[in-house]
Design a binder for these strands. Structure first.
Lengths: 142, 142
DNA sequence: CTCCTTTGCTTGACAACATGAAATATCGAG
DNA sequence: CTCGATATTTCATGTTGTCAAGCAAAGGAG
């Protein structure tokens, strides 16, 4: 169907690569502002939505559970996250953001400029078109 | 200008986050297929375009030069890359892809499905629109 | 209930990536 | 030539990632 390497596709892929690079930079930068690494920021953001077993964090991050242990350890040692027992299953430990963790996460979201800066140049209609194209792109490839 | 957290912007940012995650997954996966890490694949791809001083690789990767030393070491020990003296400046070492390195890089490009899969669902017109929106998004924020 | 497998988490060993500081060699200006 | 700047490497250290092994708890088969 799609010619393997037509100029248009290559251009779009290059642009996406640029978006990816830029997104990462900004994310790491915003995390560093709060003395967090990217991985720690991601986990903290996840836990502000709801407490979660370690195992589920690993699934979200697509990494081994043993890795999550260390990341949560570091967040816990800074008082941003705590481990609670799961009342329904004593094997499970629920990681949850502390109130201090939620404050940090909120500040982090604010300093994440990616939402405003690059999207600011697009009108509401254009953003709608972009949204729909991205949706189709992601939905179709799944 | 842009309301800080309107639903549409949040949705687009979420979609971009998904694209970023997906891009990374596929890139790491493709690299792993050739027993390379993501960082190694990136450097190898860079050096297939043209030989380059270590320092410039570090700039492209946005990391410290001392880090590049290790990555190039590993690529060199596998015969994918070599260090050459720079005729104009004896302090500089030019890293260059070997012919074997170029073969590996070419295979890697081919196995990188991101170009075909998700873009396949979009018509040429839609890809043009997407390209222009991404361009404006990136250009405006720069 | 006991046995046995599975599941959830942690620990330990190890590799890659990343930073920062210090060492070495070279360049280039004065 | 001397001195400061530049390019690279080395070392110490920390974070992220994997895999294998271990332990506690859950859950089913008998």
């Amino acid at each position: 169907m799609t010619p393997r390497t037509d100029a248009l596709s290559r251009e779009v892929v290059d642009l996406i690569a640029t978006v990816v690079a830029r997104y990462h930079e900004e994310y790491e930068e915003a995390a560093a502002k709060h003395s967090l690494t990217g991985a720690q920021a991601k986990v903290l953001a996840l836990l502000t939505l709801e407490p979660m077993p370690m195992r589920r964090i690993a699934q979200k991050l697509k990494c081994e559970p043993s890795n999550v242990t260390g990341i949560v350890d570091r967040l816990e040692s800074r008082g941003l996250v705590e481990r609670r027992p799961d009342p329904d299953d004593r094997r499970v430990k629920l990681a949850a953001a502390t109130s201090e963790g939620r404050v940090t996460a909120a500040r982090l979201r604010e300093s994440l400029g990616f939402a405003r800066e690059p999207l600011g140049g697009l009108s509401a209609e254009e953003r709608t078109v972009l949204r729909d194209l991205l949706k189709r792109m992601l939905g179709g490839g799944a």
